[in-house]
Write a protein that binds this DNA or RNA. Structure first.
Lengths: 223, 223
DNA sequence: CTGGGATTTTTGTTATAACATTATAAATTG
DNA sequence: CAATTTATAATGTTATAACAAAAATCCCAG
């Protein structure tokens, strides 16, 4: 039998897949507060479906440490300890420059443009005090770069790290007003990118991550 | 009501947990060949139980990239591409010295002893051509060190990386006979550890990882 | 023998129900 | 009124059955 439309060969994704994507997105965007309790049946009725596909999604997320299972097997949004935040940011500072270093070798000018636009939108969001927009644009800026590395290893690892920060970030930054003073490492990164400066790019990305470190630890009352 | 024996307060772990642990161990030990197909019902009858707890375990492992889901949703043991192996080892070379650097600050002499013993057993295994024993001892040596860091972030990440190598390693090293020639970075590491040499330890660990890189890439027909 | 097509088997997906444990609310007691 | 106990509700766990899609097998024409 001949397929009527072989080009539109779309296989519908399973329910657990879409639940996983939506839940992950909610976490990354900080829509769920740290410590917040979740239950399989609630999630099932929220997303439409039974507990079985929800379990698949939840277990995937717990394996990524994007969700936490308590000692009595209750599901909740993780609450990061200060030491964990510090280490997580340290890992980011190791992995993200690495991805950037690969990306600079084969990045297109079109991608650089997208990064520039994301940066502009981000600055605009900061001025308007729009936290959600700020987070989305910052994410776009970084991942346009990292995805240009073409790495199927680094990009998912870094993405998983960002998801873990999501719930914490949104509540650490009640507003983005205090962020105007920081140096603009994005501009540095774009500049280094255009002139093909491998080392400069890595330095800018590392500085961008470490700035977040300083800002967050200050927020937590540390040096 | 008073508990009869409050000390023996053991809550039995769920089935999916033990399935997850066993499957993960099989992968880490290289007992499953890359590309090998798995099925939920087979696993269920192997481990005893129904498909539901098996699904939980499998989805956790796919989230760690320890198992692979094909385009038609078939479960299989991942087959690493050369570029992926290279990147995975690069990430190891970034993360493992980092963990070692934290560990050296508060490691006990008892732990160093355990590392020394693991190294001795490993050398013994190499002489006897016992691949399984070699892999187990090498694992022990490294993770006694990493666990001493007390990091709840780095250790699980590194562990996940090792699991991904399991299936590949066992089939890349049909025997360990050719491994006598390589420099003994474990001895370097132990020496640096005893004299509290932070930089030397990191260098030794990085060299140990990169040696694996050279060896594996040679095996894959690259420079 | 060798392909190709129909059939059978296998496999992942999802919903549902029963069970044990834990958390919450209510009732009781001092 | 507070603390403790009891009862109720909610939650995670597991097994099972029905369904759809894919893979493997079988069968027959050439």
């Amino acid at each position: 039998m001949i397929k009527e439309d072989p080009q539109i060969e779309e296989i519908k994704p399973p329910l657990h897949e879409s639940i996983y994507v939506k839940l992950r997105q909610s976490l990354a965007r900080g829509e769920l507060a740290p410590g917040q309790a979740l239950s399989l049946r609630n999630l099932a009725s929220s997303f439409g479906g039974s507990v079985t596909p929800v379990r698949d999604a939840v277990w995937r997320l717990t394996a990524e440490y994007a969700l936490h299972i308590g000692p009595t097997r209750r599901i909740s949004v993780p609450q990061l300890k200060k030491s964990e935040i510090r280490e997580l940011l340290r890992v980011r500072a190791l992995l993200e420059p690495e991805a950037a270093g690969i990306a600079i070798k084969n990045i297109s000018s079109a991608t650089i443009d997208k990064m520039r636009i994301a940066d502009e939108n981000m600055n605009h969001a900061v001025k308007n005090g729009d936290v959600a927009q700020y987070m989305a644009c910052n994410h776009d800026f970084h991942f346009h770069l990292y995805r240009a590395s073409g790495s199927s290893v680094l990009v998912p690892m870094i993405e998983a790290l960002w998801v873990r920060f999501g719930p914490f970030m949104r509540h650490a930054y009640p507003d983005v007003s205090g962020m105007n003073g920081v140096e603009d490492h994005h501009a540095e990164a774009l500049s280094a990118l255009k002139r093909g400066d491998d080392f400069g790019l890595k330095r800018a990305i590392a500085a961008d991550v470490n700035d977040g470190l300083k800002f967050l630890l200050h927020d937590l009352g540390e040096s």
